[in-house]
């Protein structure tokens, strides 16, 4: 088989829900593509847009930010702030011409191992046809 492009995804997962959700997928031995580099953050609300840009700069082909469902955030309101901020980041990235598929956000609870694996599968499938991310990647 020819070398197929395998996208690198950096996933910022909140500690209390999404990270636990990804753990559940792991311990339940659910199969999902190994393209993800998970990074646990305390809360989706603690995501600085700089983390996202840094990941792209360092060569991520896709970035995912995932937090608890609205109403379930461990810090009560963190994901509501995140929802606003991430919406703006997403719009801005599209405005400068980055492919919209490259930046995603999701709500994944600690019980949603299956949802997490599906999100990653879909993400990988969407990234494959658009190829490596070179726009924001540092060349040297």
């Amino acid at each position: 088989m020819a070398d197929e492009f395998e996208p690198k995804i950096v996933a910022f997962l909140c500690k209390w829900c999404s990270s636990a959700g990804s753990d559940l997928a792991g311990v339940s031995r659910m199969q999902y593509p190994p393209n993800v580099i998970p990074i646990t953050v305390m809360c989706s609300g603690s995501m600085s847009p700089l983390y996202i840009l840094s990941a792209f700069k360092k060569g991520a082909d896709g970035v995912l930010v995932s937090g608890c469902h609205p109403g379930d955030c461990h810090y009560i309101k963190g994901n509501f702030y995140a929802r606003r901020r991430i919406a703006l980041v997403k719009k801005l990235l599209e405005f400068i011409g980055l492919e919209p598929q490259r930046f995603q956000m999701s709500w994944v609870s600690a019980a949603e191992g299956t949802k997490y694996t599906q999100i990653i599968k879909d993400f990988v499938e969407e990234l494959k046809p658009i190829g490596p991310q070179t726009k924001l990647r540092r060349s040297s």
């Binding site: 847009p49 700089l50 840009l53 840094s54 700069k57 901020r85 703006l88 980041v89 801005l92 990235l93 400068i96 726009k135 924001l136 990647r137 540092r138 060349s139 040297s140």
Partner: peptide, 21 residues
Amino acid sequence: KWIERSPDSSENFVYHLVRAI
């Protein structure tokens, strides 16, 4: 060190996006 000062294309984008946000 989030951003390099050198006017590299990618660093410039990060600066301007962070500034805008």
